[in-house]
Design a protein around this nucleic acid. Structure first.
Length: 482
RNA sequence: GCGAAAGUAGCUCAUUUGGUAGAGCACGACCUUGCCAAGGUCGGGGUGGCCGGUUCGAGCCCGGUCUUUCGCUCCA
Protein backbone atom coordinates (compact mmCIF):
# COMPACT_ATOMS: atom_id res chain seq x y z
CA UNK A 1 0.00 0.00 0.00
CA UNK A 2 1.61 3.23 -1.05
CA UNK A 3 1.23 5.85 1.60
CA UNK A 4 2.59 9.09 0.29
CA UNK A 5 0.02 10.08 -2.37
CA UNK A 6 -2.97 9.15 -0.25
CA UNK A 7 -1.51 10.96 2.76
CA UNK A 8 -1.37 14.09 0.67
CA UNK A 9 -4.96 13.63 -0.40
CA UNK A 10 -6.05 13.15 3.19
CA UNK A 11 -4.16 16.28 4.25
CA UNK A 12 -5.74 18.18 1.39
CA UNK A 13 -9.20 17.01 2.43
CA UNK A 14 -8.61 18.10 6.04
CA UNK A 15 -7.41 21.53 4.87
CA UNK A 16 -10.33 21.87 2.50
CA UNK A 17 -12.77 20.90 5.25
CA UNK A 18 -11.44 23.69 7.42
CA UNK A 19 -11.04 26.33 4.74
CA UNK A 20 -14.58 25.98 3.47
CA UNK A 21 -16.34 25.72 6.80
CA UNK A 22 -17.00 22.00 7.08
CA UNK A 23 -14.94 20.92 10.10
CA UNK A 24 -12.88 22.91 12.62
CA UNK A 25 -10.67 21.65 15.46
CA UNK A 26 -12.57 22.13 18.71
CA UNK A 27 -11.63 25.13 20.86
CA UNK A 28 -8.96 26.02 18.35
CA UNK A 29 -8.09 29.37 19.92
CA UNK A 30 -6.95 27.40 22.98
CA UNK A 31 -4.78 25.06 20.87
CA UNK A 32 -7.61 22.63 20.33
CA UNK A 33 -8.70 19.59 22.29
CA UNK A 34 -7.31 16.25 21.23
CA UNK A 35 -9.59 14.37 18.85
CA UNK A 36 -12.55 16.71 19.25
CA UNK A 37 -13.94 18.61 16.28
CA UNK A 38 -16.73 21.07 15.51
CA UNK A 39 -18.81 21.14 12.38
CA UNK A 40 -19.03 24.47 10.58
CA UNK A 41 -21.79 26.00 8.44
CA UNK A 42 -21.54 23.61 5.49
CA UNK A 43 -20.38 20.68 7.60
CA UNK A 44 -23.30 20.80 9.99
CA UNK A 45 -25.72 20.98 7.08
CA UNK A 46 -24.06 18.06 5.30
CA UNK A 47 -24.08 16.04 8.50
CA UNK A 48 -27.74 16.80 9.08
CA UNK A 49 -28.57 15.82 5.50
CA UNK A 50 -26.81 12.47 5.90
CA UNK A 51 -28.66 11.90 9.16
CA UNK A 52 -32.00 12.87 7.62
CA UNK A 53 -31.43 10.59 4.66
CA UNK A 54 -30.65 7.65 6.93
CA UNK A 55 -33.62 8.47 9.15
CA UNK A 56 -36.01 8.63 6.20
CA UNK A 57 -34.67 5.39 4.74
CA UNK A 58 -35.19 3.66 8.08
CA UNK A 59 -38.35 5.09 9.60
CA UNK A 60 -40.17 6.39 6.55
CA UNK A 61 -39.44 3.69 4.00
CA UNK A 62 -40.01 0.83 6.46
CA UNK A 63 -43.47 0.60 8.00
CA UNK A 64 -42.16 -1.69 10.72
CA UNK A 65 -39.40 0.62 11.96
CA UNK A 66 -40.09 3.48 14.36
CA UNK A 67 -37.78 6.05 15.88
CA UNK A 68 -36.95 7.20 19.38
CA UNK A 69 -34.64 9.77 20.93
CA UNK A 70 -33.29 8.52 24.24
CA UNK A 71 -31.30 10.56 26.75
CA UNK A 72 -27.52 10.43 26.91
CA UNK A 73 -27.70 9.88 30.67
CA UNK A 74 -29.01 6.51 31.74
CA UNK A 75 -29.45 4.73 35.03
CA UNK A 76 -26.01 3.46 36.15
CA UNK A 77 -27.26 -0.11 36.35
CA UNK A 78 -27.78 -0.02 32.59
CA UNK A 79 -24.03 -0.25 32.12
CA UNK A 80 -23.66 -3.06 34.58
CA UNK A 81 -26.28 -5.01 32.67
CA UNK A 82 -24.70 -4.22 29.31
CA UNK A 83 -21.28 -5.36 30.51
CA UNK A 84 -19.60 -1.99 30.05
CA UNK A 85 -18.71 -1.37 33.68
CA UNK A 86 -16.75 -4.53 34.35
CA UNK A 87 -13.70 -5.49 32.41
CA UNK A 88 -12.66 -1.94 31.70
CA UNK A 89 -11.71 -0.44 35.00
CA UNK A 90 -8.32 -1.99 35.69
CA UNK A 91 -5.43 0.33 36.45
CA UNK A 92 -2.53 -0.23 34.05
CA UNK A 93 1.15 0.66 34.06
CA UNK A 94 3.75 0.60 31.30
CA UNK A 95 7.44 -0.20 31.50
CA UNK A 96 9.21 2.52 29.54
CA UNK A 97 12.09 0.29 28.45
CA UNK A 98 10.29 -2.84 27.33
CA UNK A 99 7.07 -1.01 26.31
CA UNK A 100 5.22 -3.81 28.04
CA UNK A 101 1.91 -2.93 29.67
CA UNK A 102 0.82 -4.56 32.90
CA UNK A 103 -2.31 -4.64 34.94
CA UNK A 104 -1.13 -3.16 38.23
CA UNK A 105 -2.77 -5.87 40.36
CA UNK A 106 -1.18 -8.64 38.27
CA UNK A 107 2.24 -7.03 38.51
CA UNK A 108 2.12 -6.75 42.28
CA UNK A 109 0.60 -10.19 42.78
CA UNK A 110 3.41 -11.66 40.66
CA UNK A 111 5.94 -10.05 42.93
CA UNK A 112 4.12 -11.36 46.00
CA UNK A 113 4.36 -14.89 44.62
CA UNK A 114 8.11 -14.49 44.27
CA UNK A 115 8.30 -13.38 47.90
CA UNK A 116 6.40 -16.48 48.96
CA UNK A 117 8.79 -18.68 46.98
CA UNK A 118 11.64 -17.08 48.88
CA UNK A 119 9.84 -17.86 52.13
CA UNK A 120 8.93 -14.26 52.87
CA UNK A 121 5.27 -15.02 53.52
CA UNK A 122 4.73 -12.09 55.89
CA UNK A 123 6.17 -9.57 53.46
CA UNK A 124 3.98 -10.98 50.70
CA UNK A 125 0.85 -10.73 52.82
CA UNK A 126 1.68 -7.17 53.78
CA UNK A 127 2.26 -6.25 50.17
CA UNK A 128 -1.07 -7.66 49.06
CA UNK A 129 -2.92 -6.07 51.95
CA UNK A 130 -1.39 -2.69 51.07
CA UNK A 131 -2.29 -3.19 47.45
CA UNK A 132 -5.91 -4.01 48.20
CA UNK A 133 -6.24 -0.94 50.41
CA UNK A 134 -4.77 1.31 47.72
CA UNK A 135 -6.84 -0.26 44.94
CA UNK A 136 -9.99 0.28 46.95
CA UNK A 137 -9.15 3.98 47.22
CA UNK A 138 -8.04 4.24 43.56
CA UNK A 139 -4.83 5.66 44.98
CA UNK A 140 -2.64 5.39 41.89
CA UNK A 141 0.23 7.43 43.32
CA UNK A 142 0.30 5.16 46.33
CA UNK A 143 0.28 2.08 44.12
CA UNK A 144 3.19 3.39 42.08
CA UNK A 145 5.09 4.14 45.26
CA UNK A 146 4.35 0.60 46.41
CA UNK A 147 5.81 -0.76 43.18
CA UNK A 148 8.89 1.42 43.51
CA UNK A 149 9.41 0.76 47.23
CA UNK A 150 9.29 -2.98 46.65
CA UNK A 151 11.66 -2.63 43.69
CA UNK A 152 9.29 -4.49 41.42
CA UNK A 153 10.89 -4.76 38.00
CA UNK A 154 9.68 -5.62 34.53
CA UNK A 155 10.36 -9.26 33.71
CA UNK A 156 11.39 -8.38 30.15
CA UNK A 157 13.57 -5.30 30.53
CA UNK A 158 14.49 -5.96 34.14
CA UNK A 159 14.14 -2.27 34.95
CA UNK A 160 11.95 -0.31 37.30
CA UNK A 161 11.45 2.51 34.80
CA UNK A 162 7.65 2.84 34.99
CA UNK A 163 5.12 5.27 33.60
CA UNK A 164 2.43 6.76 35.79
CA UNK A 165 -0.44 4.44 36.56
CA UNK A 166 -3.47 5.04 34.41
CA UNK A 167 -6.95 3.74 34.46
CA UNK A 168 -8.19 3.19 30.95
CA UNK A 169 -11.87 3.42 31.56
CA UNK A 170 -13.86 3.41 28.38
CA UNK A 171 -16.74 5.43 29.77
CA UNK A 172 -16.77 9.09 30.75
CA UNK A 173 -18.36 9.64 34.10
CA UNK A 174 -19.83 12.51 36.02
CA UNK A 175 -21.92 13.01 39.15
CA UNK A 176 -25.63 13.31 39.18
CA UNK A 177 -26.84 15.97 41.57
CA UNK A 178 -24.76 18.42 43.52
CA UNK A 179 -23.01 16.21 46.08
CA UNK A 180 -20.09 14.45 44.49
CA UNK A 181 -19.29 12.31 47.51
CA UNK A 182 -22.63 10.60 47.27
CA UNK A 183 -20.88 8.51 44.65
CA UNK A 184 -23.94 8.81 42.46
CA UNK A 185 -21.78 8.27 39.42
CA UNK A 186 -23.46 8.30 36.07
CA UNK A 187 -21.90 7.72 32.70
CA UNK A 188 -22.11 9.34 29.33
CA UNK A 189 -23.44 6.53 27.17
CA UNK A 190 -20.72 4.67 25.25
CA UNK A 191 -23.33 3.45 22.76
CA UNK A 192 -26.86 4.50 21.95
CA UNK A 193 -28.18 0.94 21.73
CA UNK A 194 -29.06 0.60 25.41
CA UNK A 195 -31.55 3.45 25.17
CA UNK A 196 -33.47 1.31 22.71
CA UNK A 197 -33.28 -1.89 24.73
CA UNK A 198 -34.56 -0.36 27.96
CA UNK A 199 -37.45 1.19 26.02
CA UNK A 200 -38.30 -2.00 24.18
CA UNK A 201 -41.68 -2.55 25.81
CA UNK A 202 -42.63 1.14 25.88
CA UNK A 203 -42.15 1.35 22.16
CA UNK A 204 -43.64 -2.02 21.31
CA UNK A 205 -46.79 -1.33 23.27
CA UNK A 206 -47.39 2.33 22.43
CA UNK A 207 -46.66 2.01 18.74
CA UNK A 208 -48.41 -1.40 18.72
CA UNK A 209 -45.49 -3.04 16.95
CA UNK A 210 -45.48 -6.68 15.94
CA UNK A 211 -42.36 -8.73 15.59
CA UNK A 212 -40.41 -8.44 13.39
CA UNK A 213 -39.97 -4.70 13.93
CA UNK A 214 -37.19 -2.18 14.39
CA UNK A 215 -36.41 0.83 16.57
CA UNK A 216 -34.12 3.48 15.11
CA UNK A 217 -32.20 6.22 16.83
CA UNK A 218 -29.50 8.77 16.15
CA UNK A 219 -27.48 10.49 18.82
CA UNK A 220 -24.21 11.25 20.51
CA UNK A 221 -22.13 8.61 22.26
CA UNK A 222 -18.85 8.97 24.14
CA UNK A 223 -15.84 6.71 24.48
CA UNK A 224 -12.64 7.57 26.26
CA UNK A 225 -10.41 6.01 23.60
CA UNK A 226 -6.77 5.54 24.49
CA UNK A 227 -5.80 6.72 21.05
CA UNK A 228 -8.21 8.78 18.99
CA UNK A 229 -6.91 9.79 15.62
CA UNK A 230 -7.28 10.24 11.88
CA UNK A 231 -9.27 13.45 11.86
CA UNK A 232 -12.96 12.80 12.56
CA UNK A 233 -12.64 9.05 12.01
CA UNK A 234 -12.08 8.18 15.65
CA UNK A 235 -13.33 10.79 18.08
CA UNK A 236 -14.13 10.63 21.75
CA UNK A 237 -17.49 12.27 21.17
CA UNK A 238 -19.29 10.95 18.13
CA UNK A 239 -22.70 10.37 16.69
CA UNK A 240 -24.27 7.03 15.94
CA UNK A 241 -27.17 6.11 13.71
CA UNK A 242 -28.45 2.74 14.66
CA UNK A 243 -31.41 0.46 14.39
CA UNK A 244 -32.22 -2.53 16.53
CA UNK A 245 -34.41 -5.05 14.76
CA UNK A 246 -36.37 -7.38 17.04
CA UNK A 247 -37.07 -10.85 15.73
CA UNK A 248 -38.24 -14.29 16.71
CA UNK A 249 -35.47 -16.48 18.16
CA UNK A 250 -34.12 -18.84 15.55
CA UNK A 251 -34.64 -16.45 12.65
CA UNK A 252 -31.49 -14.43 13.30
CA UNK A 253 -29.44 -15.92 10.46
CA UNK A 254 -31.87 -14.87 7.74
CA UNK A 255 -32.46 -11.42 9.23
CA UNK A 256 -28.73 -10.92 9.65
CA UNK A 257 -28.26 -11.64 5.94
CA UNK A 258 -31.24 -9.44 5.13
CA UNK A 259 -29.85 -6.37 6.90
CA UNK A 260 -26.34 -7.01 5.67
CA UNK A 261 -27.66 -6.75 2.12
CA UNK A 262 -30.04 -3.86 2.87
CA UNK A 263 -27.37 -1.73 4.46
CA UNK A 264 -24.96 -2.23 1.59
CA UNK A 265 -27.76 -1.22 -0.78
CA UNK A 266 -28.19 1.98 1.21
CA UNK A 267 -24.51 2.84 0.82
CA UNK A 268 -24.58 2.17 -2.90
CA UNK A 269 -27.75 4.27 -3.24
CA UNK A 270 -25.59 7.31 -2.60
CA UNK A 271 -23.82 6.68 -5.88
CA UNK A 272 -20.59 5.37 -4.38
CA UNK A 273 -18.99 2.63 -6.44
CA UNK A 274 -19.08 -0.89 -5.04
CA UNK A 275 -15.33 -1.40 -5.31
CA UNK A 276 -14.82 1.17 -2.53
CA UNK A 277 -16.71 -1.11 -0.16
CA UNK A 278 -16.12 -4.52 1.33
CA UNK A 279 -17.50 -6.71 4.09
CA UNK A 280 -15.27 -7.78 6.92
CA UNK A 281 -16.54 -10.69 8.99
CA UNK A 282 -15.64 -10.71 12.66
CA UNK A 283 -13.74 -13.80 13.69
CA UNK A 284 -13.49 -12.90 17.36
CA UNK A 285 -17.01 -12.04 18.47
CA UNK A 286 -17.99 -9.64 21.22
CA UNK A 287 -19.63 -11.03 24.33
CA UNK A 288 -23.14 -10.22 23.07
CA UNK A 289 -22.96 -11.39 19.46
CA UNK A 290 -23.36 -14.64 17.55
CA UNK A 291 -22.44 -13.09 14.20
CA UNK A 292 -20.95 -9.74 13.23
CA UNK A 293 -19.76 -8.02 10.10
CA UNK A 294 -18.30 -4.62 9.32
CA UNK A 295 -19.00 -2.64 6.21
CA UNK A 296 -15.63 -1.16 5.35
CA UNK A 297 -14.89 1.72 3.03
CA UNK A 298 -11.62 2.54 1.35
CA UNK A 299 -10.65 5.80 3.03
CA UNK A 300 -7.51 7.68 1.97
CA UNK A 301 -5.79 5.81 4.82
CA UNK A 302 -7.06 2.36 3.85
CA UNK A 303 -10.14 0.18 4.29
CA UNK A 304 -11.81 1.04 7.61
CA UNK A 305 -15.10 0.27 9.33
CA UNK A 306 -18.05 2.61 8.73
CA UNK A 307 -20.91 0.43 9.85
CA UNK A 308 -21.40 -2.75 11.83
CA UNK A 309 -24.17 -5.32 11.54
CA UNK A 310 -24.36 -7.47 14.64
CA UNK A 311 -26.53 -10.39 15.58
CA UNK A 312 -26.86 -9.52 19.28
CA UNK A 313 -29.00 -12.54 20.23
CA UNK A 314 -31.20 -11.94 23.29
CA UNK A 315 -28.18 -10.93 25.36
CA UNK A 316 -29.14 -7.31 26.07
CA UNK A 317 -32.84 -7.82 26.79
CA UNK A 318 -32.11 -10.84 28.98
CA UNK A 319 -29.50 -8.97 30.96
CA UNK A 320 -31.85 -6.03 31.47
CA UNK A 321 -34.49 -8.49 32.66
CA UNK A 322 -32.06 -9.85 35.22
CA UNK A 323 -30.85 -6.51 36.50
CA UNK A 324 -34.19 -4.68 36.46
CA UNK A 325 -36.28 -7.68 37.50
CA UNK A 326 -38.82 -6.55 34.89
CA UNK A 327 -39.95 -8.85 32.14
CA UNK A 328 -38.87 -7.79 28.67
CA UNK A 329 -40.83 -10.28 26.68
CA UNK A 330 -43.03 -10.30 23.66
CA UNK A 331 -46.23 -12.27 23.28
CA UNK A 332 -46.30 -13.74 19.81
CA UNK A 333 -49.95 -14.24 18.83
CA UNK A 334 -49.00 -16.46 15.91
CA UNK A 335 -47.55 -19.16 18.12
CA UNK A 336 -49.29 -18.15 21.36
CA UNK A 337 -45.99 -17.90 23.21
CA UNK A 338 -43.93 -15.46 25.23
CA UNK A 339 -40.28 -15.03 24.38
CA UNK A 340 -37.39 -12.61 24.68
CA UNK A 341 -36.79 -11.41 21.12
CA UNK A 342 -33.49 -11.75 19.34
CA UNK A 343 -31.91 -8.63 17.92
CA UNK A 344 -30.11 -7.69 14.73
CA UNK A 345 -28.31 -4.37 15.07
CA UNK A 346 -27.19 -2.03 12.31
CA UNK A 347 -24.94 0.67 13.69
CA UNK A 348 -23.27 3.33 11.59
CA UNK A 349 -21.00 6.17 12.67
CA UNK A 350 -22.42 9.44 11.36
CA UNK A 351 -19.07 11.20 11.56
CA UNK A 352 -17.45 8.35 9.68
CA UNK A 353 -20.17 8.50 7.05
CA UNK A 354 -19.48 12.23 6.79
CA UNK A 355 -15.78 11.55 6.26
CA UNK A 356 -16.66 8.84 3.77
CA UNK A 357 -18.82 11.22 1.72
CA UNK A 358 -16.20 13.94 1.94
CA UNK A 359 -13.28 11.76 0.83
CA UNK A 360 -15.29 10.05 -1.86
CA UNK A 361 -16.50 13.39 -3.23
CA UNK A 362 -13.22 15.27 -3.14
CA UNK A 363 -11.48 15.75 -6.46
CA UNK A 364 -8.68 17.99 -7.66
CA UNK A 365 -9.60 18.16 -11.31
CA UNK A 366 -7.48 19.34 -14.21
CA UNK A 367 -9.49 21.01 -16.95
CA UNK A 368 -8.29 21.18 -20.55
CA UNK A 369 -9.47 24.47 -21.92
CA UNK A 370 -10.30 25.18 -25.56
CA UNK A 371 -7.25 27.36 -26.10
CA UNK A 372 -4.96 24.49 -25.16
CA UNK A 373 -4.07 25.69 -21.67
CA UNK A 374 -5.05 23.80 -18.56
CA UNK A 375 -6.87 24.92 -15.49
CA UNK A 376 -7.74 23.24 -12.24
CA UNK A 377 -10.55 23.18 -9.76
CA UNK A 378 -11.34 21.49 -6.49
CA UNK A 379 -14.80 20.01 -6.61
CA UNK A 380 -16.86 18.08 -4.10
CA UNK A 381 -19.09 15.65 -5.98
CA UNK A 382 -21.67 15.32 -3.21
CA UNK A 383 -24.78 13.35 -4.09
CA UNK A 384 -27.37 16.07 -4.80
CA UNK A 385 -29.77 14.85 -2.12
CA UNK A 386 -27.25 15.40 0.70
CA UNK A 387 -25.32 18.42 -0.62
CA UNK A 388 -25.42 21.36 1.86
CA UNK A 389 -26.54 23.82 -0.81
CA UNK A 390 -28.69 22.54 -3.64
CA UNK A 391 -28.76 25.59 -5.85
CA UNK A 392 -26.70 28.75 -6.30
CA UNK A 393 -28.51 31.68 -7.88
CA UNK A 394 -26.15 34.09 -9.59
CA UNK A 395 -27.09 37.27 -11.45
CA UNK A 396 -24.56 37.83 -14.21
CA UNK A 397 -24.21 41.49 -13.22
CA UNK A 398 -25.35 43.40 -10.20
CA UNK A 399 -27.31 45.94 -12.20
CA UNK A 400 -29.87 46.16 -15.00
CA UNK A 401 -32.50 44.55 -12.80
CA UNK A 402 -30.81 41.15 -12.80
CA UNK A 403 -30.45 40.92 -8.98
CA UNK A 404 -34.17 41.60 -8.65
CA UNK A 405 -35.00 38.71 -10.98
CA UNK A 406 -32.56 36.49 -9.12
CA UNK A 407 -34.11 37.38 -5.76
CA UNK A 408 -37.51 36.40 -7.11
CA UNK A 409 -36.19 32.96 -7.98
CA UNK A 410 -34.44 32.83 -4.61
CA UNK A 411 -37.70 33.54 -2.77
CA UNK A 412 -39.46 30.85 -4.75
CA UNK A 413 -36.83 28.16 -4.19
CA UNK A 414 -35.64 28.75 -0.63
CA UNK A 415 -38.90 27.47 0.81
CA UNK A 416 -38.13 24.07 -0.68
CA UNK A 417 -34.37 23.64 -0.35
CA UNK A 418 -31.13 25.40 0.59
CA UNK A 419 -30.15 28.05 -1.93
CA UNK A 420 -27.18 30.36 -2.11
CA UNK A 421 -27.25 33.83 -3.59
CA UNK A 422 -24.19 35.73 -4.76
CA UNK A 423 -23.61 38.67 -7.07
CA UNK A 424 -19.97 39.37 -6.30
CA UNK A 425 -17.02 38.66 -8.62
CA UNK A 426 -16.84 37.16 -12.07
CA UNK A 427 -19.20 34.33 -12.89
CA UNK A 428 -16.41 31.79 -13.35
CA UNK A 429 -15.06 32.48 -9.91
CA UNK A 430 -18.48 32.08 -8.40
CA UNK A 431 -18.90 28.74 -10.14
CA UNK A 432 -15.60 27.53 -8.68
CA UNK A 433 -16.57 28.60 -5.20
CA UNK A 434 -19.74 26.55 -5.49
CA UNK A 435 -17.74 23.58 -6.79
CA UNK A 436 -15.58 23.77 -3.69
CA UNK A 437 -18.58 23.42 -1.39
CA UNK A 438 -20.28 20.85 -3.58
CA UNK A 439 -23.35 22.76 -4.81
CA UNK A 440 -24.76 20.57 -7.60
CA UNK A 441 -26.56 23.29 -9.60
CA UNK A 442 -25.85 26.91 -10.45
CA UNK A 443 -28.33 29.15 -12.21
CA UNK A 444 -27.25 32.37 -13.90
CA UNK A 445 -29.70 35.18 -14.56
CA UNK A 446 -28.59 37.26 -17.58
CA UNK A 447 -30.00 39.88 -19.91
CA UNK A 448 -31.77 37.26 -21.99
CA UNK A 449 -33.73 36.29 -18.90
CA UNK A 450 -35.47 39.65 -19.06
CA UNK A 451 -36.53 38.98 -22.62
CA UNK A 452 -37.60 35.33 -22.68
CA UNK A 453 -37.61 34.19 -19.05
CA UNK A 454 -34.90 31.58 -19.52
CA UNK A 455 -31.79 31.09 -17.38
CA UNK A 456 -28.53 29.22 -17.76
CA UNK A 457 -28.24 26.17 -15.54
CA UNK A 458 -24.74 24.90 -14.98
CA UNK A 459 -24.03 21.40 -13.71
CA UNK A 460 -21.27 20.92 -11.15
CA UNK A 461 -19.89 17.58 -12.27
CA UNK A 462 -19.91 18.03 -16.04
CA UNK A 463 -19.56 21.83 -16.04
CA UNK A 464 -22.03 21.80 -18.93
CA UNK A 465 -24.66 24.47 -19.14
CA UNK A 466 -28.01 24.78 -20.86
CA UNK A 467 -30.89 27.21 -20.98
CA UNK A 468 -34.12 26.34 -19.27
CA UNK A 469 -37.19 28.41 -18.36
CA UNK A 470 -36.73 30.11 -15.03
CA UNK A 471 -40.06 28.76 -13.79
CA UNK A 472 -38.83 25.20 -14.28
CA UNK A 473 -35.73 25.58 -12.06
CA UNK A 474 -37.40 24.66 -8.80
CA UNK A 475 -39.07 21.51 -10.07
CA UNK A 476 -35.89 20.42 -11.83
CA UNK A 477 -33.82 20.70 -8.65
CA UNK A 478 -36.53 19.00 -6.60
CA UNK A 479 -36.48 16.12 -9.05
CA UNK A 480 -32.78 15.59 -8.47
CA UNK A 481 -32.84 15.75 -4.68
CA UNK A 482 -35.83 13.59 -3.83
C1' G B 1 0.78 4.79 25.63
C1' C B 2 5.81 4.24 22.77
C1' G B 3 8.51 6.01 18.44
C1' A B 4 9.03 9.45 14.04
C1' A B 5 7.84 13.98 11.51
C1' A B 6 5.52 18.62 11.55
C1' G B 7 3.28 23.55 13.55
C1' U B 8 4.99 31.02 10.27
C1' A B 9 -1.86 35.19 7.63
C1' G B 10 -8.29 31.73 6.44
C1' C B 11 -5.38 27.98 2.83
C1' U B 12 -0.51 26.55 0.41
C1' C B 13 4.27 27.93 1.50
C1' A B 14 9.00 31.25 1.50
C1' U B 15 12.37 33.78 4.93
C1' U B 16 20.26 29.56 3.01
C1' U B 17 24.89 30.49 8.37
C1' G B 18 20.49 33.85 14.80
C1' G B 19 19.82 40.73 13.44
C1' U B 20 12.27 42.35 15.66
C1' A B 21 8.44 38.54 8.89
C1' G B 22 7.03 38.06 2.91
C1' A B 23 4.43 35.88 -1.56
C1' G B 24 0.35 33.50 -4.13
C1' C B 25 -4.54 32.41 -3.45
C1' A B 26 -8.51 33.81 -0.13
C1' C B 27 -11.06 38.19 2.43
C1' G B 28 -13.26 43.72 2.41
C1' A B 29 -14.26 48.55 -0.49
C1' C B 30 -14.33 51.05 -5.15
C1' C B 31 -13.57 51.36 -10.65
C1' U B 32 -13.72 48.61 -15.22
C1' U B 33 -15.95 44.05 -17.11
C1' G B 34 -19.59 40.23 -17.98
C1' C B 35 -20.88 32.69 -18.89
C1' C B 36 -15.97 28.90 -16.10
C1' A B 37 -10.56 30.87 -10.74
C1' A B 38 -10.38 38.61 -15.46
C1' G B 39 -7.64 43.61 -14.67
C1' G B 40 -6.62 47.97 -11.70
C1' U B 41 -6.44 51.03 -7.03
C1' C B 42 -6.77 50.89 -1.88
C1' G B 43 -7.35 48.08 2.56
C1' G B 44 -7.88 44.42 6.84
C1' G B 45 -5.30 40.29 8.84
C1' G B 46 0.57 37.30 11.98
C1' U B 47 3.05 39.01 20.15
C1' G B 48 6.13 32.91 14.16
C1' G B 49 1.26 26.88 18.56
C1' C B 50 2.31 27.93 23.89
C1' C B 51 5.93 28.39 28.17
C1' G B 52 10.84 28.73 29.56
C1' G B 53 16.32 28.80 28.64
C1' U B 54 21.00 30.35 25.97
C1' U B 55 22.30 35.21 23.60
C1' C B 56 23.48 42.19 23.17
C1' G B 57 19.60 40.01 19.97
C1' A B 58 15.63 33.82 18.72
C1' G B 59 10.64 32.15 13.65
C1' C B 60 15.77 29.88 13.37
C1' C B 61 19.76 26.98 18.80
C1' C B 62 18.25 24.08 23.58
C1' G B 63 14.39 22.09 27.13
C1' G B 64 9.34 21.38 28.25
C1' U B 65 4.30 21.43 26.74
C1' C B 66 -0.08 21.42 23.41
C1' U B 67 -2.00 20.01 18.66
C1' U B 68 -1.82 17.23 14.07
C1' U B 69 -0.25 13.30 10.71
C1' C B 70 2.35 8.53 10.17
C1' G B 71 4.21 3.55 12.28
C1' C B 72 3.48 0.16 16.47
C1' U B 73 -0.06 -0.80 20.53
C1' C B 74 -5.33 -0.58 21.87
C1' C B 75 -10.33 -0.82 19.96
C1' A B 76 -15.44 -4.30 25.04
Amino acid sequence: MSKTPSDNTFQAIISHAKEYGFVFPSSEIYDGLSAVYDYGPYGSQLKKNIRDYWWACMTQMNENIVGIDAAIFMHPTTWKASGHVDGFSDPLIDNKDSKKRYRVDHLIEGHAEKLVERGEQVAADNLLANMDALLAKDDFEGLKKLIEDNKIHCSISGTGNWTEIRQFNLMFSTELGSVAEDANTIYLRPETAQGIFVNFLNVQKTARMKIPFGIAQTGKAFRNEIVARQFIFRMREFEQMEMQFFIKPGTQKEWYEHWKAERMKWHLSLGITADKYRFHDHVKLAHYADAAVDIEFEFPFGFKEVEGIHSRTDFDLTRHQEFSKKKLQYFDTEINQHYVPYVIETSIGLDRMFLLILSNSYEEETINKEDGTTDSRVVLHFPARIAPNKLAILPLTKKDGLPELAKELMDECKKSFHCFYEEKDAIGKRYRRQDAIGTPFCVTIDHQTKEDGTVTIRYRDSMLQERIPMNKVKSMVLEHIS
